[in-house]
Computed example of a mutant assay.
Amino acid sequence: MRGQPVRVAAIDCGTNTIKLLVLDEDGADLEREMRIVRLGQDVDRTGRLAEEALERTFAAVEEYAALVARHGVDRIRFCATSATRDAANAEEFAAGVRARLGVAPEVVSGDEEAALAWAGATRGLPGLAGPVVVLDIGGGSTELVLGSGATPDVAHSMDIGSVRMTERHLRSDPPSADEVAACVADVESALDACPVDPGAAVTLVGVAGTVSDRLVGSTAAERAEMAWLHPGRADVIAAGALVLSRVLARSRVSELVVSEADILDGIAWSLREG
């Protein structure tokens, strides 16, 4: 099929969400879905994927398999990221995906995850002033990617995602000052060791949506009432806000460019161009 128009399906299975994107032969969206499955539940503590998390994820995979079959796609790529990289029972997850979808999941490295995030985030934003830093705050990890062209120059993945930081530090609802301080210290330590300097960016592109200080001081129930926030992110978004705030504090930009496209789009376009 190389060189011919193809219909593709991309699945991005992260620590908190599993997403599906189906593109038609012209590259237009046919299907774009997201389910909150929290695959990475307790992985930071136990090193294993929880049985109930696997059940939630497999249920979503079955839904997606039906959609993929209905659209008659030519190529499928299923990418799993931070939670699966860290799990001792990742093969149980892989076997379950193969049984339901007919393809094996790729457990992508942090570098590959960052490159896909770069491709997805920048493709639809031509003419950005460089250097550009792309920030992708996920559930298990956060990627910073620096570049000025079609491919990144340097990328780094850090284990400071919103689910991981919430489970590790923000155990009260709302979080206490000491918990917030511990979370911030963890994030700052990871950024200190990161080879991508947010201060190098002329343009900072974020793919994790809008966050603010109000989120950290709110309870999970109060956050769930915010119309723009998906309820499945309400309990972990405060940690994501803290990660973003520390990255912004190190940058010299006056605004954050928000991309509606992310790693999922990067996966889909890798199939079309492969």
Rank of each mutant, 00 (worst) to 15 (best):
E63M: 05
T203Q: 06
A227Q: 13
L244S: 04
R70G: 15
E92P: 02
G47D: 04
S176L: 15
I263H: 00
T122D: 04
C79H: 00
L248S: 13
V73R: 04
R246P: 08
T210E: 15
D186P: 09
L101S: 12
V37I: 10
F93I: 02
A238H: 11
Q4G: 10
R98Y: 03
M34S: 06
A150H: 04
V97H: 05
V68M: 11
W269C: 11
S254Y: 05
G124M: 03
G161S: 05
V145N: 01
T84F: 00
A88V: 10
E91G: 02
D29E: 10
S148T: 15
E225F: 01
G232F: 09
G161F: 00
D178N: 14
G47M: 08
V43P: 07
V43F: 09
D178M: 15
A208L: 01
E91Y: 04
S109V: 00
T142R: 11
G110D: 00
G274H: 07
V184M: 14
H156E: 08
E167S: 04
E167F: 12
A241R: 06
R164N: 06
S212D: 15
V134M: 05
V180G: 07
E260M: 05
R171C: 13
L271K: 04
R214Q: 15
I237M: 15
L242H: 13
S251A: 10
L215K: 07
D111C: 02
V163F: 09
R233F: 15
I237Y: 09
A181D: 12
E273V: 14
D192N: 15
I267W: 00
H156C: 11
S218C: 13
L204R: 13
S176I: 11
N16Y: 01
S176H: 03
A28R: 14
V134E: 07
R214G: 12
H169D: 13
A60Q: 13
V211T: 14
A10Q: 13
S270L: 01
G27D: 06
R77L: 01
R171P: 07
V107P: 07
T219C: 07
S251W: 04
P174V: 07
P152T: 10
A88G: 06
D153E: 13
D74R: 06
S176Y: 10
A177V: 13
G127M: 09
P198H: 11
G217P: 07
V43R: 05
L21S: 02
E63N: 04
L67I: 12
D24S: 08
L67D: 09
